[in-house]
Design a protein around this nucleic acid. Sequence first.
RNA 1: UGGGGCGUCGUCAAGUGGUAAGACACAUGGUUUUGGUCCAUGUAUUCGAGGGUUCGAAUCCUUCCGCCCCAGCCA
Length: 591
Amino acid sequence: MSNKPDAPEKGKDFIRQIIDKDNESGKYEGRVQTRFPPEPNGYLHIGHAKSICLNFGIAHDYNGKCNLRFDDTNPVKEDIEYVDSIREDVAWLGFEWDANPFASDYFEKLYYIAELFIKMGKAYIDHQSADEIRENRGTLKAPGTNSPYRDRSVEENLDLFRAMRAGELKDGDCILRGKIDMAAPNVMLRDPALYRIKRADHHRTGDTWCIYPMYDFTHGLSDAIEGITHSICTLEFENNRPVYDWCVDTLMAGLKQPELFGENETIYNELAGLPGFNQRPRQYEFARLNITGTVLSKRKLIKLVQEGYVSGWDDPRMPTISGFRRRGFTPESIRDFCNRIGVAKADSTVEYALLEHCVRQDLNERAPRYLGVMDPVKLVIENYPEDQTDEFSMPLHPEDESYGTRVVPFSRELWIERADFMEDPPKKFFRMGPGREVRLRFAYYVTCTGFEKDADGNITEIRATYDPETKGGWSKDGRKIKGTMHWVSARHAVKAEVRNYTNLFTTDNPNSVEEGKTFVDYVDPNSLETLTDCWVEPALLDMEPGTNFQFERTGYFCTDSKDHKPGEKPVFNRTATLRDSWAKIQKKMGK
RNA sequence: UGGGGCGUCGUCAAGUGGUAAGACACAUGGUUUUGGUCCAUGUAUUCGAGGGUUCGAAUCCUUCCGCCCCAGCCA
């Protein structure tokens, strides 16, 4: 693993420009520290990859640090399964975190920070019900009204908060609120909740706590504790930034009042000594990623998994990191994608075609080539002896000899692609048809002599003769052959299962739906096509699960990480098709 | 005028007062034992719209229009 972010040498994004300015002014004495802060309540998706590449990429570029911090302040939604998957995905993408803290590591500190806020008169215990609080918050246009509990004494607030921690109050009885401004035009500032009572088993702290801090309180303070300099998040948190600032500023002010420290002097002095309190973190927001034809919200992804629209978080049609991994995408291709899409503040939807381009480019360079027939039809070479076999040594990569070769057997009966034959082909069709000569890749030129059909008119067998002088797939006389086809020797072929994936949704934008519908109504039931009658060359049988390769003329594939059994049962996932200009021509002719 | 953001090619996106980068997509040619790859060429007289400042504006001022986010004891 390395933190190499494959940084492009183009105009810097606005966050890097800010960092450059901070470095010039010496704001953080050249220190650059970021963090990627997922809540472990789901699997990471490609949108997270954008954030990961940004945060870890910046740390790399500026010789700084980047933490992987789990924002685990809501035990009812979080689970260790997600912690493990997130670590795996970040590492797979190729990044190394400098530290891997949990917000829950700071629960003790955060608790005493809350006490300090109370002592400063900046926080109070509110006994209003959730409904009352909502009503009194006002509306977007009308100011809220103060809680009747807003002006309690410091002593009473402190007693109550300690009682909350001690478990003397029931869930929902009260919350700790920041005392800011119930009339603030920004609703976030109308005395935000800081702590709530929640008797739930936490995946790390168990039942140690029955009160848990809220995101707004936790996030900025965790950043400060870790010495984060640039706290990068997505646009929807822009409204929260004043709360972020309020929390950090309030603490910094509090730490300058030792008379409030009481018996917890040690904790407060420790906090005051951390770099984050002299060089406070700032939050910056960028536009989250959207990709055409898919959804990138945890809520929606969870629904797809839980309601069985897909086989799991790692279903190859899922836009999760694990889904792309199983589909055959490489970490390099995803990083390349993230670098290409840029970082800005304008809402954006990137075309899936760009992601596909990134994998194709990477795999074109690195994937070894093999032959496999997806939709087989028999080709019999009439003048090739029954008992004869040729063995062709074929290059594994057309542009890189270092990949070496593999041996592919040839015999009288072959499987070829049904789509490579036409009974009555148009001029632009370069493949096989009655009387036409074509090349079998790296084997021989063959000329079609006839074919057979069944009662329904389906081609059942094609017949041809071969020219022994064209061994290897070329001729001395230099005659031009336009069509080259892939093939597999029927006698030697290995049966394989191939899973072809297309877009999970039938629409380019499943986020905007017709009235009365939801995004799941647009799930395409045909987005997974399982081919069980494919014939592939023998060399593929022993591949390890998760191996990338190309079926020539067809696409990039990988052996399935779960179902492919080397030596027993080959199962291939299609990562992406090859670009297909013949399909384009067909489309044009059809119109 | 509740507050906060954002509007540059079909899609992303550079550009930060000196006369519209690049990528993907698309189109057309060339090379090719993958109709793949690769190579070449073309594609915004114009920056949401109008007005203004200036020798000069996508960049500054101004008015308007459109889109996104916020009223969880979620993050």
